[in-house]
Every structure is written in structure tokens, then in C-alpha cells.
Simulated scan of single mutants.
Amino acid sequence: MPRSRPSHSPERVAHAACSVSDLLEVLWGRGQEASPAGPLPPSQFRALTVIEEQKKVNQRTLGEALGSRPSAVSRLCDRLEAAGLIERLPSTTSRREVDLCLSRRGAAVLEKFRTLRVREVEAVLEAMPPDHLATLAEGLALFQAAAGEHIGLRGEANADDGPATAIA
């Protein structure tokens, strides 16, 4: 008789997290549809989030954080710059590199999308009992810290922090 995996094994929790992620994408998509700025593709949102977290970052480091090839990161940055969401500035450490920084417009767009996302998720969370919310908040803070460390983002997660500290 095959041994079953414990209900809290990393594999089972990963499957549950992916299912929740799919539902979150649906919720967030609903929020984006209501945005006057129009939809922000997930790849652009992730890049803006990494750039915001790092304050300034070069394309190589951005690519490593996103798990993307240099050519894809370059095209992504071209689109972000053309949309006025990032700025490319001469690097202070190397003449061969440029630093990527979030523009004021990029910061405003991120804030707007986060606000829309929070509203959608908040509507779901309001249906949960307070003790379940506390457990979820604790688990999410721990997951955020582990994920940030795994992909090389600095800083520690704090369950009481606002959306500006969220990874995505």
C-alpha cells in the first residue's frame, strides 16, 4: 500500500498555493478591468515591483530576480520606459550599465493597481472568521519573507506593513 503524503507537505501546500494563485489572478483581473489606466501585464507588474523594492537595479539583477533572459528583460524595460513607468539612468558604479528606477508615474500606477487588488481580496477576506484571518496573515508573512529571500529581494516581510512592501 503506497504511503500518502502528509496534508501539510511542501508538495501539497504548493498545489494549494497555486490553486489560490489562480483564483487571485481572477480577482486581480476583475480589479484591473475597472482601472482607468487599463490593464498592466503580469510581467510588467513583477518588474515594477522588483525595481520598487530594490530602489534602483540594473537589467542583469532584474533578470535574475524575474528568472528571465537578458533579451527578454531588455524588451520588457523598453516597454516600461516607453510607457513612462521606469527611467534608465547612468549607473553610479559602472559606465557600462544603466540603473532602472521607478518613475513617479510608475509608482502611481503600482499604487493604483495595488489598491484595486486589495479591494478585490478584501471582499473575500471579509467572509472569513477572525481567527482564520489571523492564521492566514501569519502564514502569508512567513511565505513572503521566504519567497523574498529565495528570489534575492532584500528586506523582511511584516504582516502589519502595507501594500508597498508586498512582493506581488
Rank of each mutant, 00 (worst) to 15 (best):
Q144Y: 06
P42Q: 10
A168L: 13
R88T: 09
R105H: 09
V118Q: 03
E25H: 13
D161V: 08
E52G: 06
A127G: 03
G139E: 12
A166G: 08
P42N: 02
A82I: 00
S21N: 10
D131W: 08
Q59F: 12
S74W: 04
D161A: 15
E81I: 02
A166K: 04
S71H: 10
G152Q: 13
L85F: 02
G29L: 00
E11T: 13
R3A: 14
G148N: 10
Q54A: 10
G148F: 00
L136V: 13
N58K: 06
T115K: 09
K112A: 03
F113C: 05
T135D: 12
P6N: 06
A147D: 09
V50Y: 11
V26P: 00
D160E: 13
A147T: 08
A83P: 01
N58L: 05
A168R: 02
P129L: 14
F113G: 02
A65G: 00
A147M: 09
G162I: 04
A72L: 13
P6C: 10
D160H: 05
T49H: 08
L100S: 08
S94F: 08
R104Y: 02
S43W: 01
E120S: 09
V57H: 05
E81F: 03
R114F: 02
P90Y: 08
V50K: 03
L66W: 07
R117V: 01
V20D: 03
A17C: 09
R96E: 11
T165Y: 05
L116W: 00
S21I: 03
C101R: 15
P6D: 14
R12A: 11
L85R: 02
L27F: 03
G29T: 01
